[in-house]
């Protein structure tokens, strides 16, 4: 090996030292998060693969108002002409099994990030995260809200902080009809460990959540990703008269649920609420009486449940 001429050594070593310093000092540290990311679907598969049973709200910090809306929810709502092409909102899309693409835009003169954009594979959920260098004006109170909302972001160390608001009314969990209002906000922390991307979402809603709903999603780097177009045409799939709204009539006198009984979930736990979020609740839950199987109910109870079930499932004539 040839020795470097001695007159260059001071410069080389000094440069190396400064490089070390640059790594140590937290000045404008950013992670490279652009590219395609594949969702890791092992997390909370019960909630997001098939979805929990209707009426099982355990583990969710919902309010009484949210529960009441969900109890009248009918999934045929998704077949309404005006809503069938609705994409997942910003608070829901990252929790599903869609590939995500992230790209950035830089100011050509200053090379500062002006915006970071994300797109999920399903239904072209395209979100713009305006960075501070963009000086993008905040939307006025009279502007329409959108499914993806208005997002602003900034780097804190190597973590991207994102705040989102101006969302349309949407849902916390689609399959159950749990609502979120148009006052919902979401704060995210997005960071990268090697080829793993982490998105921690903290969703707040003064109307339907008594505490922030916190969720983390992992993605694996996808070197050869792609994204297909998503055309959506409105077609009648479930015939219904004009103006009809799918819903369930109120039936909350017994709250009996055969699905919970089969899984051994106590009715009290299925009601959800912030107390059911915490690990200690599992110990408490063991003290609750289980739902008796339907076959163990007496005839009068069975008749009452059948009547309520029939009422709730009444449809338009």
């Amino acid at each position: 090996m040839k020795i470097m001429p001695i007159k260059l050594r001071p410069l080389w070593l000094t440069a190396a030292g400064i490089s070390v310093a640059a790594l140590v000092a937290p000045v404008a540290a950013q992670s490279l998060i652009t590219g395609y990311w594949n969702p890791l679907g092992h997390q909370d598969a019960y909630h997001y693969a098939g979805g929990p049973d209707p009426g099982d709200f355990s583990g969710l910090p919902i309010t009484d108002a949210a529960r009441k809306i969900a109890q009248q929810y009918d999934a045929d709502e998704f077949h309404m002409r005006e809503l069938m092409c609705r994409p997942f909102p910003a608070t829901y899309g990252p929790r599903t099994l869609s590939t995500m693409r992230i790209w950035e835009t830089l100011d050509p003169q200053t090379q500062e990030q002006t915006k970071i954009e994300t797109q999920m594979g399903f239904a072209v959920q395209h979100r713009v995260i305006w960075m501070e260098a963009s000086h993008h004006p905040y939307p006025s109170a009279s502007e329409p809200h959108t499914w993806q909302g208005y997002s602003t972001g900034k780097w804190v160390g190597n973590v991207l902080w994102v705040h989102t608001d101006h969302l349309k009314p949407h849902y916390l969990q689609r399959s159950q009809g749990l609502p979120l209002s148009d006052r919902t906000t979401m704060d995210e922390r997005i960071f990268r460990y090697g080829n793993i991307l982490v998105d921690i979402m903290m969703i707040s809603d003064p109307a339907y959540l008594s505490r922030p709903f916190i969720y983390s999603k992992l993605y694996a780097y996808l070197p050869q990703g792609n994204m297909d177009p998503y055309p959506c045409s409105v077609r009648n799939q479930v015939p219904m008269p004009e103006g009809h709204v799918p819903m369930r009539l109120p039936f909350y006198t017994t709250n009996y649920n055969a699905a919970f009984a089969a899984k051994g979930i106590p009715l009290e736990a299925a009601r959800g609420g912030e107390q059911t979020m915490f690990p200690e609740y599992q110990d408490y839950m063991k003290t609750l009486p289980p739902n008796p199987p339907y076959s163990q109910l007496d005839a009068e109870q069975q008749k009452q449940i059948e009547q309520q079930s029939a009422t709730s499932q009444q449809k338009f004539p």
């Binding site: 809503l83 329409p144 809200h145 349309k168 819903m247 009539l249």
Partner: peptide, 25 residues
């Protein structure tokens, strides 16, 4: 209130219809 689009009005209509149907029931 704020400007909206067809989906906003559809959600507003849905809410009012559900309340109306419940009251009629």
């Amino acid at each position: 209130g704020r400007a909206c689009d067809q989906a906003d009005v559809a959600l507003y209509r849905n809410m009012l219809t559900i309340i109306r149907n419940t009251v009629q029931y």
